[in-house]
Design a protein around this nucleic acid. Sequence first.
DNA 1: CCGCATCCCCAAAGATACTG
DNA 2: CAGTATCTTTGGGGATGCGG
Lengths: 223, 223
Amino acid sequence: MDKRRTYGQACPVAHAMDVLGERWAVLVVRELRLGPRRYSDLAANLPGIGPNVLAQRLRELEHSGVVRRRTLPPPAAARVYELTAWGAELEPVFAALARWGTRSPQPLQGVLSPDSVLLGMRAFFRSAEPWDATVEIRLERDVYALRVEDGTVAELRRGEAAAPDAVLTGGVAVLHAVTSGLRTLDDALRDGGLVVEGDATVAHRLVAAAQRPGAAALGSPGP
Amino acid sequence: MDKRRTYGQACPVAHAMDVLGERWAVLVVRELRLGPRRYSDLAANLPGIGPNVLAQRLRELEHSGVVRRRTLPPPAAARVYELTAWGAELEPVFAALARWGTRSPQPLQGVLSPDSVLLGMRAFFRSAEPWDATVEIRLERDVYALRVEDGTVAELRRGEAAAPDAVLTGGVAVLHAVTSGLRTLDDALRDGGLVVEGDATVAHRLVAAAQRPGAAALGSPGP
DNA sequence: CCGCATCCCCAAAGATACTG
DNA sequence: CAGTATCTTTGGGGATGCGG
């Protein structure tokens, strides 16, 4: 008998919470939004989760059809977890949740996973003019490929970029501070918190477009 | 010391789950989407929640700024819970969650609260042509006012409608079956499962527009 | 009655250690 | 590396009770 704890409602929202309502489940899915990950990478980016809980969540998400286990073909024969087609359809949910979360009366505080920073950049990406570029972003040990087409983010995934116009390297906290408007890109470049190789104009455009709404306006420092 | 259990991440999604991630929290908010409710009405529409958990969720949601407690002015001096402005901004999240939930590989099964049926009708409302109408919908002991303007749902709230073009009365299960395409409105009217007073055309238009995508196409019954 | 608080019990989360 | 085993702690489910 399937005695799983469920809300027992036919409401689609209730069913969604049956699938995603357990603790850590949403954050596990979030860590898979930019591509497949291994168990230990998931654990490393979800501080505090505990191995048993992570394993159980992955099992449940697999069983409900959100996540799929796959073994990479040799020579990289590693087991990875990735979103199913249905799991990938959670994008609009994350978009709405992220916008709602930023409007919280309480300030956001805590650590940030590399994925979160990149996902935040994409979520709030807004460009005044159409432009194209391919950027590789290197945060500590994670590498991301970001392609802008017509002023919108056409692609964002984990992994190296082919023939990038610019490579942006730095720390998670610094990049987040810059896209949050707490620091300027020039300031971060000056002290080496961020480093740009290639077309610096592209990096400036990228940071400008990824600026979060409500961010502190820099350039005219207050009293 | 505030030792509340939190994910400790600055990610807006993680913060949203800090607020909404506890069991029953999302469903409590759902029950407040169509207007203020009293404690006992919430408990009645959330079968299985238990009084202590409901009270605790309401306290937490109030503390985090999603829900507000209010005492209605006399003579109806009752305590009600209602969404704050921030809580009302969860609408896009519910819309996305509902669409995702209906695309689950597993079929939705269980009971349905009256609010869920009405919210589902609004979520999937899609009209081919512009039309206006005010409809009052009476499900068991709950009454709703629904106003259609230009073929879209301009208003949906709990309470009686002023000068409705039609009044639709019936049971939760029957209305859900009709909007799900499992039964036709005419069929439900024939056996009294639903009753229409006023303009029957309006009721037919309403049901047609609220038809869920992927619903079984009736009219040409199978073998 | 309505709006909870209390109590008891069990299931799930957290922490740690350990293994194929 | 990818989890399992085990133990402790916390929170939810269910019943009952009590004050306003």
